[in-house]
Design a binder for these strands. Structure first.
Lengths: 346, 346
DNA sequence: CCGGGCGACTGAACCGGTTTAGCCAGCCTA
DNA sequence: TAGGCTGGCTAAACCGGTTCAGTCGCCCGG
C-alpha cells in the first residue's frame, strides 16, 4: 500500500501547479481562481491527501492542541467527577475542530509550574485551561510571562489578561441556606473546601452572607481540602459537639456523601435529625440514601464554553468573558425540618 | 528578550562545527570525538538551546506523545475513578521521559474509531493504551491495520500482536464469594458489569466458578453497564424478589454504593440483613456506612506499568507482557453472617 | 497606444531539526 | 611507500508544509 506517502508536492504535480498554490487553495486564501481551487481540491481528494500536521506545525509554529494541567492528588481527583465531565465537554468541541487535548496530571505545585514550562518549551499546545483557580494564582503571571494563551474557569481575584468562563456558584449556596432556614434550621454549619481555592472561599463567603440574610447567627465552618476523607473527619467533629448543627452545607458532593456515612454510623438519622446539602450533583448523589439535596453544576457545558472561548482567543487574539447560567439547588431527600420543629408541628 | 530564538544552527556556528555534528552530539551518536562533544554540549548549555520538538517530530516522524481514547458516556466516566488514577500513574512515567499524553473522550464506538484514525492520520501519538477491553475487540485489528503500537490493559480474548499489562481480578471475586460463603451465606447474587467488556464477563465467570467451588447453587446474576443507575436498578430488582439474596457481589464499587442506598431505602440493614461486596476500592468505599468490603485495584500502578511497557515497545519494537499482583479482598463492614445464622448463633 | 494595476501563479526561502554521502587526515599493514 | 581502513567531520538533501517576493498576462483609463 502507498501508505500515507502523498504529500503536497504530489498534489501540486498532479494538478499542474506549484506547491504554494496548493497550500493557498487548502487554506482558502485569496489569489487562487475558483476553477483552479476546485481542481486542486479535487486532485487532493482523489489522491487522498492529508496535509501533515507535523509539517504544518513546524512552519506555522502552532500545535493545534490545547492543554490541561491538573494539580491534585490522585485521590481527590478520583472522587471528583468534575474533570471527566469537563473534559468530555472540551472534547466535544475539539474533535470537530481538528484539535487535540494534551493532559498533564501532576502531584505538586512545583511540578505544575514545570509542566507549563515544558508545555511551552516543547510547543505542545497553543493554549491552556486554568482550572481550580487559587488566590493570587501564580499561574496567571507565569502564563503571561510565557505568552501562552489561557482561559480561566471563573474570574481570578487579581488582574488577569485572560478571558474568564464562569458559572456563579453563590446563588446555589444561598438557595441551600435559605431553603434550610425556611425549613426551620437555626444551627447550620458549613464544611468548606480549601481556602487556597477561589471556589472554596467563595462558597464559604456565600454561606456566611446567606446566613446573615436569613437573620441567623454565624454558624460553624470547617475548612477542608475538598477530599472525602476530610469531609468525613469534619462531619464527625461537628456532630460530636455539644451544640451540633441540625444542618450541614457541604462545599461538594463527595464530602456530603462522606458526611452521610458518618451520620449513619453515629446513628443520626438523615434528614430527620440532620439535614445535609451538597454541591455539584454528581452521579452518586441521586443514588445514596437519602438522595442528596444538592446544587447542580454543569461541567460538560463549562467544558464546551471554555473550549470555544480558548479557540476563539487563539485564533482571533481576543475573546470575551462568558457567564454560564448559575448553578441551582436541586431538592431531593437529604434535608427536612429539624427534629424539634417537626415535633411541635405534629 | 531573545525568546526561544536559539536553534541548532546557532549552536553549530558558535561551536564552530556543522549542524549535523551538533545533532550527533545531542543524540549521543558515534562519530563525535569526546572533546568536541563536550564542547558542543557546553555551548548548547550556554546558549540555552532546547531542540525544537516540532522540527524533531517532522524529521523523525515521531510525536513523543502517547494516546488514550476513552469511549464511555460521561456519567459512567464521572463516577469511575479508574481513569483519573490510571492517568496519574501514566503521567508519573511520561513526565520524566519528555512524553505527553493526548486524551480523547468520545461518546460512541464510531467516534472512537474515528478518533484512532485521526490520531494516526495526524501523527499525534506514537502509541496508545487500550483500556476497557471488549470481546473480539475491534480496536485490535484496527490498530494493527493502522500500524499503531499499543498496549492492552488485560489480555484480549482473541489474537493480539500487542503486549498486555494485566492484573488478575478473578482471585478478588473468588475471595469475596468464599468469604461470604464462610460467613454462612447461601443465596449470593452478582450484579455484573457489561457482558461486552472482558472484565464484565470475567468477573461474572469468576463469580460462578467460586460459587461452584463453595458448593453453592448458582445464584442470580444481573447484567448492567457498570453505571451507578444500573447498579441501583438491579439491586432493587434483586431485593424485592421472593427469594431475595442475603448477599450481593457487585462488579464495581459505584454500583455497590448505589446498592447500599437502595438497601437503606428499603429498610434492609447492611450488613445484618444483607451483605454486599464491591470491586475497585474507590475512595468513597471507606467512607460510606457501613464501609464497603471490596477488592482493591491499583490503577496507579497499572498506569505506570502500562506506560513503561508502551514506551519500551515504541523504542525497541518489542515488549513483554506484564502481570501485576492480583487484586485482593479488603474486609470492612458491609458483609457479615446472614440474619438466620446470626440468630441461631446468638 | 502606453502605463498602471490587479489577479493568478511560480520559485525559492524558510521552519529546525535528522540523515546520508562523501571528504580528509592519520595510522596500520604489506 | 603505496594502499586500505577508520574516526571525525562537513555539506547538502530531506521531512512537508507556509510564505513572500516577484513574474506574467490581461484589462482598463487616459
Amino acid at each position: 500500500m502507498n501508505t500515507q506517502k502523498v504529500t503536497i508536492a504530489d498534489v501540486a504535480k498532479r494538478a499542474g501547479v506549484s506547491k504554494g498554490l496548493v497550500s493557498f487553495a487548502l487554506n482558502d486564501r485569496p489569489g487562487v481562481s475558483p476553477e483552479t481551487r476546485t481542481r486542486i481540491l479535487a486532485v487532493a481528494g482523489d489522491l487522498g491527501w492529508k496535509p501533515s500536521l507535523r509539517a504544518r506545525s513546524l512552519s506555522t509554529r502552532r500545535s493545534f492542541a490545547l492543554g490541561l494541567v491538573v494539580a491534585r492528588n490522585p485521590e481527590v481527583l478520583g472522587s471528583d467527577p468534575f474533570f471527566p465531565s469537563f473534559i468530555a465537554g472540551v472534547e466535544s468541541i475539539l474533535s470537530d475542530r481538528g484539535q487535540a487535548l494534551v493532559l498533564s496530571v501532576v502531584p505538586s505545585e512545583e511540578a505544575e509550574i514545570r509542566s507549563y514550562r515544558q508545555l511551552v518549551d516543547d510547543g505542545r499546545v497553543d493554549g491552556v485551561f486554568l482550572t481550580d483557580l487559587r488566590h493570587d494564582d501564580p499561574r496567571i503571571p507565569l502564563l503571561t510571562e510565557l505568552g501562552l494563551p489561557a482561559v480561566t474557569l471563573g474570574r481570578p481575584d487579581g488582574p488577569s489578561p485572560f478571558p474568564a468562563v464562569s458559572i456563579d456558584d453563590t446563588p446555589g449556596i444561598a438557595e441551600s441556606v435559605a431553603y434550610l432556614a425556611r425549613l426551620g434550621h437555626r444551627r447550620i454549619a458549613h464544611i468548606a473546601g480549601s481556602s487556597t481555592m477561589l471556589h472554596g472561599t467563595r462558597r464559604r463567603d456565600a454561606f456566611e452572607a446567606a446566613l446573615c440574610t436569613a437573620g441567623l447567627p454565624l454558624g460553624q465552618t470547617i475548612e477542608t481540602d475538598f477530599s472525602v476523607a476530610a469531609g468525613s473527619d469534619a462531619t464527625r467533629r461537628l456532630l460530636t459537639r455539644e451544640d451540633a448543627p441540625t444542618a450541614i452545607v457541604y462545599a461538594n458532593d463527595p464530602m456530603a456523601i462522606a458526611g452521610l456515612g458518618v451520620a449513619h454510623e453515629l446513628g443520626i438519622r438523615v434528614p430527620d435529625e440532620l439535614s445535609i446539602t451538597g454541591f455539584d450533583d454528581i452521579d452518586f448523589s441521586r443514588y445514596v440514601y437519602p438522595p442528596l439535596t444538592t446544587v447542580s453544576a454543569t461541567p460538560v457545558v463549562w467544558g464546551r464554553a471554555a473550549a470555544t472561548t480558548l479557540l476563539a482567543l487563539i485564533e482571533t487574539g481576543a475573546a470575551d468573558d462568558v457567564n454560564l447560567p448559575a448553578a441551582r439547588l436541586i431538592i431531593r431527600g437529604s434535608a427536612a425540618a429539624p427534629a424539634h420543629t417537626r415535633k411541635s408541628a405534629t
